[in-house]
Design a protein around this nucleic acid. Structure first.
Lengths: 334, 334
DNA sequence: CTGTTAGCGCTTTCAG
DNA sequence: CTGAAAGCGCTAACAG
């Protein structure tokens, strides 16, 4: 009825029910030390008045907001979207809310975003933070409780990550078995822990196979970066390429195909992540299936544990499965 | 140094600076009525102590949280992801935070999600809400300020939407010109306003063209729904199909292709939305390009206006452009 | 079992 | 220009 809905407070309920604030508070919090009859009456008044406790006021006094923050490097990246989705739904199931902070690939914004969002929440989940190790360890205490996704185990915070290294090892082995000896790697942005893991795997592979050559091309993490890498890659006379991720692979695939290069007959291309659309390119992409939504779920589980206090700072690793599709094939006879 | 970081409060700053709370507060809020020298000293102490005002406490007294909530039907849907991204970045530019609420396609959760998140924020953006009109108008007052995305103009809340109807009109015209006279429509979930708009356009087209037939098949909104519709669609002897969205189109495309049907020679398929990967199917998808990120940006702009009080409840409509790619072609000579 | 009294950390009149 | 005091809406001892 009221034109300017004046929020009904606990005081209103108390007054119209003829009891004290504490009683109403107790009733609303299902405190059993209240006379059932009285409780019922108060509850009645509360619903009549449409009363719900102001979460802000509760948060202030209780010291918890029932909300966590998630810092994401790029909301346009399907993998991060999947992590966010898994996390958000899991948190929701436990009655928690999620505040998102998209740093839009600007590494320098990460620390600020993390700290400012942390202050309005009960904890923060850092997704594939690209900030330096020093920065990270420096700010971690101020963020606690925090959980970190896709970065190496870290003192001071539980970690949830995919094993990019072993997945890359398998991908390289796959190409090697197909006869590829000279392959390109489109390396993604610097500072990425998963990027480092990929390179480690490649270095190991080169040691294991003296006749294997891997030439690195700097490139970004998105479709356009892949497309732009087409020229250099084609000029490098490799028979296969490992793209930083599926987006890059798709960009490359699209660009080389436009130039008449046949995939995989002339050139094999492998992606990484297995984003939802990796199977729909033509040919469909060979890639490493990173269980992103599951990572998100696990990240929440870790945060939830931290929040409940039963927190042995765990460090969980999920292993991606290689999925071989049409974009990789035998090396062309040279 | 402290093991258990005891948050530094305004009182701490006041005490160690030898001034009153109010002075610190004034300084932190750049209130000019403070002696510059004093202000400088206080500021010094504040930084020394690493003080930042507790946003919760401020929110409680100020009555605003600097946060808005976004209710999304499905975080796995690329279109909603894009809306969220556009919105989130725009809000961030204005110093606002975003709380996400993914209803995971459960319409019945929408009202609760909206109301509960609203209480911890300054406003809520409803994304393509599927709840009934009555429910919507009933809860709108309690949500204000609210803005609604992808639903018809609404008293009580500004609206930002894509013109699904005109886009569908163009899509139908495109198919008609190609000679298609019997086409299928995979209709998506009930309750969707954009779905209704699509149907209106089709009804109008049938009136304009007596020889045009559009047969409707109930289907969902995701890839699998499209794939499952393959059987019925193929049995219906149509020459073209209008999918509810790109996801459905891709599912259908994938399934019929697997059965040896050639697209577009045997069957034309049109999607809707122009999600980022619509161009990478083979053949690439003809579709209507809904400017999702822009919708998100505009939604924030509307919310921002509401928040600043200068709010004529506008109703903005963006018109999708048809993009013709390889998945549609001339109707096969029968 | 219920009411009174302090705060949570901050902003804001209202006096000086 | 600065401080004292009230209060945002709620919870949690602490008394009855």
């Amino acid at each position: 009825m009221a034109k300017k809905s004046p929020r009904v407070t606990i005081t209103d309920v108390a007054r119209t029910a003829g009891v004290s604030l504490s009683t109403v508070s107790r009733v609303m919090n299902d405190n059993p030390t209240v006379d059932p009859a009285l409780a019922e009456r108060v509850r009645g008044v509360a619903t009549d008045l449409g009363y719900t406790a102001n979460p802000l006021a509760r948060s202030l006094v209780l010291g918890r907001t029932q909300t966590v923050a998630v810092v994401i490097p790029d909301l346009a990246n399907p993998t991060f979207q999947a992590i966010l989705r898994g996390l958000s739904r899991a948190a929701d199931d436990d009655g928690y809310h999620v505040l998102i902070a998209d740093s839009a690939e600007q590494v320098e914004k990460e620390p600020t975003l993390a700290t400012t969002t942390r202050r309005r929440t009960d904890g923060v989940i850092l997704c594939a933070p690209r900030m330096s190790q020093d920065e990270l360890t420096a700010m971690l205490p101020a963020l606690a409780p925090a959980v970190i996704v896709n970065r190496p185990p870290q003192p001071g915070a539980p970690t949830v990550a995919a094993d990019y290294r072993s997945a890359m090892t398998e991908l390289v082995a796959h190409l090697y078995e197909l006869g590829h000896r000279r392959v390109a790697f489109l390396s993604g942005v610097p500072g990425s822990a998963s990027g480092a893991a990929r390179k480690t795997a490649q270095a190991e592979a080169r040691i294991a196979h003296a006749d294997l050559e891997i030439v690195e091309f700097p490139a970004g993490v998105d479709f356009d970066s892949g497309a732009q890498a087409a020229g250099p890659v084609l000029a490098a006379s490799v028979t296969a390429v490992l793209a930083f991720n599926d987006l890059v692979a798709m960009g490359l695939l699209s660009a080389v195909t436009a130039q008449g290069v046949r995939v995989p007959e002339d050139l094999s291309i492998a992606g990484f992540d297995d984003i939802p659309f990796a199977r729909f390119t033509s040919p469909p992409l060979t890639t490493a299936a990173v269980p992103a939504a599951e990572l998100g779920r696990r990240a929440w589980a870790a945060m939830s544990a931290l929040l409940s206090g039963d927190a042995a700072a765990t460090s969980l690793v999920l292993t991606p499965e290689i999925v071989v599709r049409g974009s990789t094939g035998p090396a062309p006879a040279s």
